[in-house]
Design a protein around this nucleic acid. Structure first.
Length: 177
DNA sequence: AGCGGAACGA
DNA sequence: TCGTTCCGCT
């Protein structure tokens, strides 16, 4: 069912669905989710040749090497039989959840719905890193995306590379298969 | 390449 | 619930 997060609700007066705030991949918590993993790869320069942000629109990314992304995802989930066909099916389930959508006409290109993702996840950020600077930054982003929504055109004001950094708290290198 | 139904499972 | 696996269709 819908569910709701007490902390989120206090900060925003809105109850979010379960998937939105149960974002942790920390020990004892739930497993990593695919869109976290995608964000993680996007964040690291060493994977630029595999997956990268697309210039032009915020949140849009291109999978340059589908086989490699699938291999990496399979390794993380201990699913050696993973391939792009299966991975892309998982991505397609995000369409209805409004986490992602497909950029039509552009091969291997998808776009994050950042307005939704960041709004629902930034309150969580405050729980984990409640220091004043973080809170301020978090609130700034919150209102930025609240008012500007998802269809923001990149004008070079905010470098694309800066974008995924707020998500770094999601990820913890770990685990072996 | 991309889509979405169906069965399945942890 | 979030994929994984498989697959027919476009």
């Amino acid at each position: 069912t819908g569910g709701g997060c007490a902390v989120c609700s206090k900060l925003t007066s809105v109850a979010f669905p379960d998937w939105a705030y149960k974002a942790e991949s920390s020990p004892g918590s739930r497993q990593i989710q695919l869109w976290h993993f995608i964000l993680e790869l996007l964040q690291k320069e060493e994977f630029r040749h595999v997956i990268a942000w697309q210039q032009g629109e915020y949140g849009e990314f291109v999978i340059k090497d589908p086989d490699e992304v699938a291999r990496l995802w399979g390794r993380r989930k201990c699913k050696p039989q993973m391939n792009y066909d299966k991975l892309s099916r998982a991505l397609r389930y995000y369409y209805n959840k409004r986490i992602l959508h497909k950029t039509k006409g552009k091969r291997f290109t998808y776009k994050f719905n950042f307005s939704k993702l960041i709004i629902v996840n930034y309150p969580l950020w405050g729980v984990r890193a409640p220091s004043p600077p973080h809170l301020l930054c978090q609130l700034a982003f919150f209102f930025f995306f609240f008012f500007f929504g998802t269809g923001i055109q990149s004008r070079g004001v905010l470098p694309l590379g800066y974008f995924p950094s707020p998500f770094s708290f999601f990820y913890f290198e770990s685990e072996s298969c």
